[in-house]
Structure formats: structure tokens, C-alpha cells
Amino acid sequence: MSDQEDAIVIQELTKSFDAVLAVDRLSVSVHAGEIFGLLGPNGAGKTTTIRMLSALIGPTSGRAWVAGYEVGKQNQEIRSTVGILTESPGMYDQLSAERNLSFFGEMYEVADLPAQVERYLRMLGLWERRFEPVGTFSKGMRQKLAIARALLHEPKVLFLDEPTSGLDPEAALLVRQFIAELREEGRTIVLCTHNLDEADRLCDRIAVFKSNLLALDTPNALRRKLFGRKVVFHLVTAKPDLAEFVKQHPFVQSVEVVDNKLIVGLDDPESQNPLLINGLVQAGAEIQFVGEVRQRLEDVYMQLVNA
């Protein structure tokens, strides 16, 4: 591995299925302890990448290391070390929640298995229903059980493929809170999702890709790169001459007037805002409040994917 701080290192990883190139020379590193978002349209190769990194399928070319183990050469070690929540996680419906977890726990050779099963069933609110067949569970309960299954052996690296897909808002919120808690425990999490709001809230960094890498950075850094930073001044009345006044400042990149708001593009609002506020007040503006325009991650994503 090239870097001890990286939980996952991917170098020129490529996967093709006959003539279809699913992943094209992907090179990224995932830092230990971060939540790393993999974003991309359907068929972009997200699930294929996760499958390669969890040693379920082999790469066509390129190399990757997960928790220090090389994909393709140390697959058994990788499978023992990582946890995976698949896109459509199946359960043994005839068996109870407790029996399902026990089976997978035994497969992972979990020490003190009954205590681990109890811990995760309690943590995810399924303890009271532990003896009921999973076939009777709601989708949200099944998803929580699948998350428990992925965590049972305390994996250092966790792959979550669409963890809140199809869940009601309450269940989705619970799962998101749980993922945030996992970060606090220092686990490395690779989150594959179409829910951009979820990625924005949870991920430390995101990679947008469509077979190959389109962009990689923190959500805010990507916003700034693509859209710059914008500050909104809410005024009692947005007189036209105020916009002209703002434009006179050399550091101002753009100015828009929308209703009673002045939207100003700045590269360093922290130092430039006080100057603008003072100037606007002296020019007779009545400022109600000032805030930064937060560009939606959706806009960032659409710009990258459709570029």
C-alpha cells in the first residue's frame, strides 16, 4: 500500500464484462475513518467497484488494497476484514433474526457471538423481535438487520450500497444516524447512494464517477470549484443602484438581484463580507440578514455527470 493512512487504495482499477467497460482505470484512495461517497448514475460501475473491493469479483486489470490486503491475492483476508451491505440484501426468511445473525457470525468466526448479536439487535431496535421469522419483517426492519449482519464481525471497512433505498423517512433517518455513529467509532465507510442529500450530510468526501472518475473532493470543495461561493444579502428594499455599488468592488465576481436579495459571488466571503456590509450600509441599504448560498449537491452532480 502506498499510504498507511489510507484504508483503501485503488490504482487504475478496471473491470469489463465482455465488451462492456464497467469501471475504467479508477484511481482513488479512501482515508481511514472517513465516510467516502461513491456517486454516479445507474450503470456507472459503483456496485461493480464495491464488489471488486470486497473480493466478490476480480478486476480485469489494475490493483487495489483494502485494509492492507491486496484484491485478488488476499481475498480471504479481505472477506474477513470488510463488511458489506448489498443493494438488495436477502435474508433467510424462514429463520429468526437471531438465527440469521448467528449463522453469519459463525461464518465470520465472531468471538462471543451471542453478546455481539444482542448488541446489534438492541442497537437497531430489533431485540424484542429476535425470535420472529425474518419473513414477517418490514423492509425497514430487514434493512436494519442487514446492516447488523454487515457489522457483526466489527469490520474495519464497511461498504454500504444504497443503505436507505426504499425506506420510509423515519427508518431512513435512523439508518443515517446509525451510519454517522459508525464514523465516530473510527470505521471507514464507503457509501454508494443515489440520494445526494444523504451523501451531502454524511460523506467527508465524494467521488462522482461514470465508469471513470469525474471528480473527487469534499462536497463543499466541489461546490466551490464548480459554482464558486455566493453570499446573499436580504434587504428591506433592493434598489438598483446598490447592485451597481457592489459591482464596483474588484473582488466581486458576480451580482444578481432576486426580489429583495442581492446574491454576490465572492472568492473569500470571510474577509470580503465585512467590507461589503459596511459599504452597503453607508450606501443606504437596510440589511435584514446575510448568509451564504448553499448550492445543492444535486447541481454539482448534474453538472459533472452531464458535462
Partner: peptide, 17 residues
């Protein structure tokens, strides 16, 4: 059967040979 109930992938993800 494991494939149709979608339990095969989690099973193959375990360190079973």
C-alpha cells in the same frame, strides 16, 4: 435458491471457500 432469495452475495462475501 440462494441467488433467487438474494442471500448468495452476503454468503459469498463471508470468508467461506
Amino acid at each position: 435458491g440462494e441467488k433467487s432469495t438474494r442471500t448468495l452475495e452476503p454468503l459469498l462475501a463471508t470468508p467461506i471457500k
